[in-house]
Amino acid sequence: MSLVEVDSAVKTFASRVRGRDPVRALRGISLHIEEGETLAVIGESGSGKSTLGRAVLRLLDLDEGSVRFDGTDLGGLSPHAMRAMRADMQIVFQEPYESLNPRLTVGGIVSEPLEIHQPRLKTKEIRRQVLATLDRVGLPGDAARRLPGELSGGQQQRVGIARAIISRPRFMVLDEPTSSLDLSIRAQILALLAELQEDYKMAYLFVSHDMHTVESVSDRIAVMYLGEIVETAPTSQLFASPDHPYTQTLLSARLSADPRERHAYQSYAGDLSVTSPASA
C-alpha cells in the first residue's frame, strides 16, 4: 500500500469570466506516492499542478475520484476527523510572506500546529519545541519574537518549513517552494528540504514548473499538461528518454547554465501559445 493514492481525480472550476467554458483543472488524475519518496509534478501555468497539490491535501473537494492517505479515504472523513489527520500531512507554499499571518510573531506561527494537535502540551514544552524546530531549519532563536515582515524571503520560507514540520508530518506538499527565491537562497532551501526528508522520512509531492529544480530533488516525475498526467517516470529515465512529445518539448525548453550544453527548442503540436492568440 502506498502512503498517498490518488484515483481518477476530477475537478472542474466555473470560469471567472461569465460565458467562458469551465476550467477542467484535473481530468482524471491517478498517482501514488510511497513512504519517504519525492514525486515531482511538473507542468506549466494552467496545467492543474497546484490544484492537484491542494486536492491531495483535501484543501479542496474533488468532483470525482478519491484520495487515500495511509489507506484512509479522505473524502469520507468528517471535518473533525480530517482536521486531526492534518498533523500528518502539511504544505509549504510558493509565496513565503503571504503564507505567514503578518500579525503573529514567528514563535506564534510555528507553535500553532502544536497548539492544535497537542492541546495538552505545556507552554514551556511548546516553547522548547519551537526553538528546536527553528534551530533545525537554520533560524536563530531570537527569530521567534520577530514578525514575518522583518525577515528576508529566505528566512520567511524557513519559517514556513518550520511550521510544516513541527507536527512531524509523514507527507508534505511543496508547492513551488523556491520559485520566488533568489538562486543562492534557492539552493539552501532545497538542501534543507532534502536533509529534513532524510531525518524525518517524509514523502514529498514537489510541485514545480522548473525542470532544473525537479531534476535535482525528485525520485519520480509526473508531467502534467492541461489537467492530465501525460507521463510518469523515474527521474533519470524521464530525462534520458522522454516518451511523450510534450515532455520532450519541456526538456528542450530547458536553458542550461553551462554554455557548452545546447538544446534546440522544439515546439509541441498541442502548444496553444504558438499559433493563435490564446484566450487565457
Binding site: L59, R83, M85, R86, Q90, E98, P102, E112
Partner: peptide, 25 residues
C-alpha cells in the same frame, strides 16, 4: 489569502481561524 489556507492545512478549526487569523487582520 495564503496564510488562512495555511491555517486550514494545519488543521485549525473555523473558530480558531476566525479569532486568530481573520479578526486580528
Amino acid at each position: 489569502s495564503r496564510f488562512v489556507e495555511a491555517a486550514m492545512a494545519m488543521g485549525a478549526s473555523p473558530r480558531r481561524i476566525t479569532f486568530r487569523h481573520l479578526l486580528p487582520n
